[in-house]
Nucleic acid binder design. Sequence first.
DNA 1: ATTATCTATAGATCTATAGATAATGC
DNA 2: ATTATCTATAGATCTATAGATAATGC
Lengths: 212, 212
Amino acid sequence: MPEASRTKDIPTQIKNPDLVERRRRQIADSAVQLFIRRGFHKTTTRQISQAAGFSIGSLYEYIASKEDILYLVCDSIHTEVERLVTDVMSRAGGGVEALTEVIREYFLVCDRMSDFILLIYQETRSLPAQWQKRVLENELRITGLFIEVLARIAATGDLPDLDDESIELAAHNISVLGHMWTFRRWFFGRHYTIEDYIEKQTRFILSMCTRK
Amino acid sequence: MPEASRTKDIPTQIKNPDLVERRRRQIADSAVQLFIRRGFHKTTTRQISQAAGFSIGSLYEYIASKEDILYLVCDSIHTEVERLVTDVMSRAGGGVEALTEVIREYFLVCDRMSDFILLIYQETRSLPAQWQKRVLENELRITGLFIEVLARIAATGDLPDLDDESIELAAHNISVLGHMWTFRRWFFGRHYTIEDYIEKQTRFILSMCTRK
DNA sequence: ATTATCTATAGATCTATAGATAATGC
DNA sequence: ATTATCTATAGATCTATAGATAATGC
């Protein structure tokens, strides 16, 4: 798990902000692996501190509760997905081909990030309400990127049949069909490669978008 | 949670099979409510036995471990969804309207069963491997019902563009777009009613199916 | 006598913190 | 002197079972 985590609203006794950021990244990076392997509840704070390379006492200098660690993890995953998708979008051209490119790259991101996306689906509910809300907002922000792409294409007149509400729903569909690869991989993996999946779904999504 | 649970592969010391079935149904019905409210891990076996109306000692006469309870719950949910969908299908007519009807009724089932479907997404991974597999097979069987509908329509020549593989993928898409209502309800609920959602998604799904 | 149920608790965790120690900078 | 880290453990659970009791049928 990559990417810096900005100063979060998690209290700490440690004075050095850089150290806080570095240690929290260590915590998130270690925890995410453990959570993927054994789930949030079956992973102990001790295992996390050990994997991160310091003591349980030190761990609690950087977080206030075990849930905080889950939030660090969810946030770092979303930051990474968003970074990757934004990146793709900036490289994408115009017209309907842009949509094809973005779908393709997004689905590849979903494939690479499978375990992480699955984790968010499974463990979001274990977060305290306020952070649950943030995780859902992050999800929405990623869907927002697809709304942007679709709106941009629609503005040039290439998707004449799509009003704003339909664009929004189509964007959600793209997000979730990407996730579908992650949570039905146990089935699809037997029949398709990710490339097959992309090809077929792209055709579906395009006919969805080009005809009401 | 309704519907009989057949004799499962869960060992018991109790001789009377009817009693076993009845008690297990009580257990599943009580547990599902608790799991939805507080999650599997935060619900204690004591709370479950209490909600079911007997002691913790008795509880363990009908199951061997806490995971067994989760399996009872997942299974009863799938049984119910499958019953409802099968029901709808038997009433559905022919041609493309049949698809419209089935989608509509399925999405309504997803709406009513939201909490239960969400629970399965979140807690399946807490099951022992062998039962996890069964839950996934159940999921596949429900998708299979949509494959059937689509194949039936395709056989009459009404969906000429769909080969078998596309039918399969379209069926998965229908399943998951139903689930999407459940796990993005926190967002959609603000903007659409379930009827709006059905209408818009049906249009998308139809254009997906009627043109490659 | 057999079957079902209950009470009481063994045994095993696990989170979070208090208080002690080591490292760093003035 | 201040900041960061560590060790040791309090305190709170929670699952699963052993052994005792009640209910049922011969």
